[in-house]
Design a binder for these strands. Structure first.
Lengths: 207, 207
DNA sequence: ATATGATTTGGTCAATTGATTGGATCACCT
DNA sequence: AGGTGATCCAATCAATTGACCAAATCATAT
């Protein structure tokens, strides 16, 4: 089995560098165009330009590929959210900015969002992977909480209430996203999102 | 092909009454325990106690069975929501009551809710059935709007704003439901739902 | 250059899948 | 009783799928 995290080790190896990433990337492309459940090993291999057996050389089985795609999606999202929101801002403004950023993420890659939703339901049916759904929830909520918690007018003592607010925003926006995936009604999404901004602000009475 | 809507016609038939319902019900049971994507014709036939070929006698193909299950789920939901909310009530109270009712629906049949979510994503990958996802959205929103619109302190002229409010409540609660399906954290769902009640009320300033 | 181990490949297997066929069975009519 | 059409079933087909194997290929160390 190949190592994926450390690109170079003491023992030299033939050039399989980045092959896992290449396969995972191809798998994501297939999933975007055909859906998680129709992403077969053959389609993935073809999209990656490698033989089907090569998939099983770098990955134990198909499920490991799927879960790797999920990890990559989550990691990408985390990265993009992290490298933003450095300038000081009031909570009031930051709530609107955060939701605007999330919408921008969706608009720029709607296929990935649909895959992410499919993936969530997928892991719920795999007993040994079901915890990944809850893990993803917790992680994203944590990111939102950090983002909102660093607002200029929020103190560290507000952390618990910020966590509650972040959870509310996250949970509700997932629903708005689901609605958009089903209807592709962008005007409606923007309208509902602005309602969510208003509602979220109303949940934060000044201390 | 058998007729499903009219149980009795002028021309008499052998005893296949209710066979479609029997098969659809078995399909739903399989989907609840194994997921929409793992509901094979053989498992459905076994659960229904009939031969696999009988499935194709009553249904054109497997997809027709799946879509029938979706129709049944939506119809059941519509029915249960409709036969409630007859007593007069203020909008303030009705918002909380509606969300309480929805949670009760989920709690009493969580498996069906997961299937419904899977079904929504399923139809989005079937071009000729993708419109069903948007249809479902519109229908449920319509139900919520009717429910809230019949509040004692709401006039017919408020219809557009009631529609907006209903959409907000529906969209957000779908997100809360998704979170609960992933985490099964009931305490969190109740907390977030009460936040949604507060937020929704704040979106309705008295005219 | 040759050996060595990592990597890739074509070919293949066993299992599962949705769907079909032809005949058997049933209820009802004359 | 015999006919008729609807209904059901055992058996099977063709396609797809995930996984595996033995041989070929490649990169590097010696």
């Amino acid at each position: 089995m190949a190592e994926q995290t450390t690109p170079r080790k003491s023992r030299p190896r033939p050039n399989s560098d980045g092959r896992r990433e290449q396969i995972v990337s191809a798998a994501l492309r297939v999933m975007i165009s055909e859906g998680v459940y129709h992403a077969t090993t053959r389609k993935i291999a073809e999209a990656a330009g490698v033989n089907v057996a090569t998939l099983h050389y770098h990955f134990h089985d198909k499920e490991e590929i799927i879960l790797s795609v999920m990890a990559v999606l989550a990691s990408n999202y985390r990265g993009r959210l992290d490298e933003r929101f450095s300038a000081p801002q009031t909570l009031h403004d930051r709530i609107a900015d955060l939701l605007g950023f999330i919408w921008q993420e969706i608009e720029s890659a709607p296929g990935e969002q649909l895959v992410l939703q499919e993936m969530t339901l997928y892991v719920l049916r795999v007993p040994q992977a079901a915890h990944l759904a809850a893990d993803k929830e917790r992680e994203i909520k944590q990111l939102y909480a950090e983002c909102l918690g660093r607002s200029s007018d929020v103190s560290a003592a507000d952390a618990p209430r910020i966590a509650e607010l972040s959870n509310f925003i996250y949970a509700c926006f997932v629903g708005i996203l689901n609605q958009w995936l089903a209807t592709r009604d962008t005007a409606l999404l923007l309208k509902t999102t602005s309602q969510l901004v208003t509602a979220a602000r109303s949940l934060w009475p000044a201390t």
